[in-house]
Design a protein around this nucleic acid. Structure first.
Lengths: 211, 211, 211, 211
DNA sequence: AATGAATGAGCGTTCATTCAT
DNA sequence: CATGAATGAACGCTCATTCAT
């Protein structure tokens, strides 16, 4: 019995060679992410997770020693996934990409991952400060890493003389991230294609930061 | 048994002429707002509220028929309070205030109210989508009204030819509000004076929206 | 809400002035003692206790913070009661009572209390080594005190030259107490009057110890 | 699937010719006896037994249809073992052995078996009355037989005019057995050599019974 | 011969709620 | 006006047991 360590976004390439155990485990983690994203930390019931994963609640204890461990695994996995997705996106940019290009790409990555791809990311974002300290132990490095990347993006912009003087880098970064994070609260597919939101967000973020 | 309809921000000037009942009622609602703002909807326990209000839990039932009604009252009151605060702020602006001035004032009002003044506003903002539909019945008008004011602010900007063409008014408004709402997740007084955040936010919001 | 500190043997003199709470509390503790005496530590279910006390199981939590605390209270109370009963019995003996007289009286006190009077004593005796260390914290002093009294009784016998030379005082004491403790496993009222057992036990104990 | 009928005390000389199944079976029964002796009936978990026997819990069901049957087998086996051990001990005594000699030998056999040799005996003794009636069905004959032997020993003493008149044979027997049984609750090897306890017990028992 | 995977029953506990006082 | 006392529903979790492999 191994814990699922690959981030769920990659889960698509797991073929039919998966064992039954691995499949149940994945269903469980996915279900937990979905419930956590929807109901929030305190509202997340094991019975809801179990129902969604199509097992009985005690089956969870075959894979995780407690509710706490399961939630921690979701947050951990979600945070790692967000960071990996952003890192990969940035890595794929050509060397000629400017700080501005990179921020635009980061905005798109953040929104796509959060809105389109992953309950895990939504679980992380929506429960950011709702979850007790001890549930985040394992995720703190990842979350810190994610914020660090953004810090770097803003710093690069500043170094290139492209950050407006009246924007404190730290506050500016949080305001940008806030506007992106909050999209989970209002955007849904019926509101139109995600590309529309991405384009507006990119434009607004860059105008907000640059001279 | 009367519901408390005056918004809690004003509650401070309630003198000593209030009855004991009214005072307990106020303590209860304030306590509920504080707990709701901190713990979130599902994490809010009547016992926590009661403790904070210095009564026994069943006393709540003298003022509200259920947990649901109490929470609804907080959200309602919080939403009304946010709207009233914003309306008053805008009303106090001179007639010569431009759409830009008005948006800057609205940003400041939003942040001050949410960060500095009111657990009620924080309760509304943080639990925005976490609370089941039926808990918001009474608040929906107020919340709708609040959003409507912002819609007007953005529309005025657009009418004045000051809204950039690539900013969809509706999406733009939500992105701005998201960046403001999210401040409750990261700002705290130790991070420096609120005026710093307000200034940066105003600048970023206006640059994001205007040509 | 006060914990019941008087030992249950004395409970008989509580008149009708008792509050309802005190009566429920007493029923609960009595029920816990009875179940513990009968089913043993691991076999003691809160639901059994509740049923016997004629309340619903969660009512227990109005009086005790956990199963552990309730059981601890029974053991504590039981141990204190045994000790008090023995001390009182010995104190009531005339000053002219010999060490032999005192041991005979102690044997009777032990048996009467354990067999006739108190589920609490039976709960203590039968669960002596079955209960985890931490459940006995509060009772350890009392239990230690009880054993200490017996140590004194045997020592007095020895000092009076009435302890046979081949009886190690410590082992001898445990063998005597074992024979008394074990009566809870086999004696019941249908086997005849308790006085019969007491007489035989006294005779055997004294012949076992004395020259 | 065969039940293990040989008493466990003899189990040590089972050679390597035993099948793997028989060895697992033996480990299981031994583990059950150990856990039962230590934790008591209600505290005995199949998972503890399995761990001690180094198998997974469901493996137990290959050998026993239920927890009940396993425990019953331990008790049965333990009772049979006690009886056999006592019978053998008595049979090995010379024909010239007096009733007194035989009781002394029985005391030693009881203590050695219980304290030194067998978790099975300790499981029987400590759970004597803790185990529901139906778990003892199979053991009742053996236990009855064991008590019967002791009845005979006391009766022989009486017939030889060596039982004090004020000792009821039945009560006397239970008091003696109680003092011996209870040793499992307090004696441990660190308290000194078992021979010390045996000597004191023999002396006390005989002085308690004889004129 | 034994395990991995999962379940159903039940336990200790929490919590919103009731009701007599 | 508020509490003390108690309850019913539900939750997290444990455990004996099942069953395909």
């Amino acid at each position: 019995m191994t814990r699922r360590t690959v981030e769920p976004v990659d889960a698509e390439d797991t073929g039919t060679t998966e064992t039954k155990s691995a499949r149940t485990h994945a269903r469980l983690l996915d279900a937990a992410a979905a419930v956590l994203a929807e109901k929030g930390f305190a509202g997340t019931r094991l019975s809801d997770i179990a129902e969604r994963a199509q097992v009985q609640a005690p089956a969870i204890y075959y894979y995780y020693p407690s509710r706490e461990h399961l939630i921690e695994a979701v947050i951990s996995s979600g945070a790692a996934s967000m960071r990996a997705f952003l890192e990969r996106t940035l890595a794929e940019l050509p060397d000629t990409a400017t700080p501005t290009d990179r921020i635009a790409a980061a905005v798109e990555a953040h929104l796509r991952h959060e809105l389109e791809l992953s309950d895990y990311a939504r679980a992380v974002v929506r429960n950011a400060n709702q979850i007790p300290e001890e549930f985040r132990r394992a995720a703190i490095t990842e979350i810190g890493g994610y914020y660090e990347i953004w810090r770097g993006l803003v710093e690069d912009l500043r170094a290139a003389g492209q950050l407006r003087a009246d924007v404190d880098p730290s506050v500016g970064r949080m305001i940008v991230l806030g506007s992106l994070n909050w999209t989970v609260e209002w955007w849904d597919a019926q509101r139109g294609p995600i590309e529309g939101v991405i384009a507006v967000a990119q434009s607004m973020v860059l105008h907000a930061l640059r001279p």
